[in-house]
């Protein structure tokens, strides 16, 4: 090992200098959520399960058409999840109440990417292929993606799907929030334009939050007092109001803390400006130099 005195001090000098420029304290974690994003409010008391949003979504995103419903409602017999061919799906639940004809009252739930304010998928993506846009959309750039699927591991809503049967160029697939459409003035997401009962309202997230709370307040007894997406994992661009508790509708119960907070805090306090690796390098270099001097061994050329 050619660790001469001069070499050593040259190297360690550089190390020390780089540690010295370190800012005194690593910055506390800050939310990177856009201040005034768009969102959608889904009112589950209005949705009648027509699944037109599924059709519209397939059309605007050039996906294969959704499963045709041959006779009434067989498609609802099984709970579906969004997948690589369908960015949104509607499922049916029963409230336990009966309608005038004594038939059980259904509740329909449209699901898609929630477009989180501090998305776990965006924090996780190794190459930054997923980004949270100013307008609220969580956008996927296939040209960067390497297919590690860490985004899928991270997403608390189990949303991103994968083209597992494409051997060479599989893509991550999820609702785009119709990014291209809503980026244009007056543009609306495909699903929101088509809904015949206005169950999906598109607008600024802040406005939608007020609207949701107003609906809950103006219709006592109709809604549970919970806007899903207001606080979940730090807030999501898509919001839901419902007559049934969300836990009964397969919505994951989530903490208010944004998912990436802990990992990003640890990561940045340990590695910003690479201070800890540089320090460790210097430390080990010092030890090595001392121990080498102690049992000086000139022809030790290190088998490794």
């Amino acid at each position: 090992m050619q660790l001469t005195r001069r070499n050593f001090f040259k190297f360690m000098g550089a190390t020390g200098a780089s540690v010295a420029v370190l800012p005194s304290s690593a910055q506390a974690w800050q939310s990177k959520a856009p201040p005034d994003p768009y969102g959608c409010l889904v009112d589950l008391t209005r949705c009648n399960g027509c699944r037109k949003c599924e059709d519209a979504c397939s059309t605007v995103n050039e996906l294969p058409p959704p499963i045709k419903d041959v006779c009434d409602c067989t498609v609802f017999e099984k709970k579906r999840r969004p997948d690589e061919n369908a960015f949104t799906v509607v499922n049916r639940y029963f409230s336990g109440k009966l309608d005038e004809l004594d038939k059980p009252l259904p509740v329909f739930v449209k699901i898609q990417c929630m477009h989180c304010q501090d998305p776990a998928c965006v924090s996780a993506c190794i190459v930054g292929a997923l980004t949270k846009k100013e307008n609220g959309a969580v956008h996927y750039d296939v040209s960067k993606c390497i297919g590690c699927r860490y985004c899928m591991v991270a997403c608390p809503f189990e949303i991103p799907a994968y083209e597992y049967h494409d051997p060479i160029t599989p893509r991550v697939r999820k609702c785009t929030f119709c990014f291209d459409r809503i980026s244009k003035d007056g543009g609306l997401p495909g699903c929101a334009t088509i809904c015949p009962v206005e169950a999906i309202t598109f607008g600024k997230r802040n406005t939608l939050l007020e609207l949701a709370k107003k609906r809950i307040k103006d219709n006592p007894g109709k809604y549970v007092d919970h806007v899903y997406g207001e606080k979940e994992v730090g807030g999501t661009s898509w919001l839901y109001v419902s007559s049934l508790p969300f836990s009964k509708l397969n919505f994951p119960q989530l903490p208010e803390k944004p998912s990436p907070k802990l990992s990003e805090t640890i990561q940045h306090s340990l590695f910003s400006y690479l201070w800890s690796p540089i320090l460790l390098f210097g430390l080990l270099g010092g030890i090595m130099y001392k121990s080498k001097k102690k049992n000086d061994n000139p022809q030790d050329k290190g088998g490794a």
Binding site: I126, V127, Y162
Partner: peptide, 17 residues
Amino acid sequence: GRSWAIWKPIFFWNTNS
């Protein structure tokens, strides 16, 4: 999924990840 793209992190960085 895209083994041939394994070099991409060298150029596209996400230091939060």
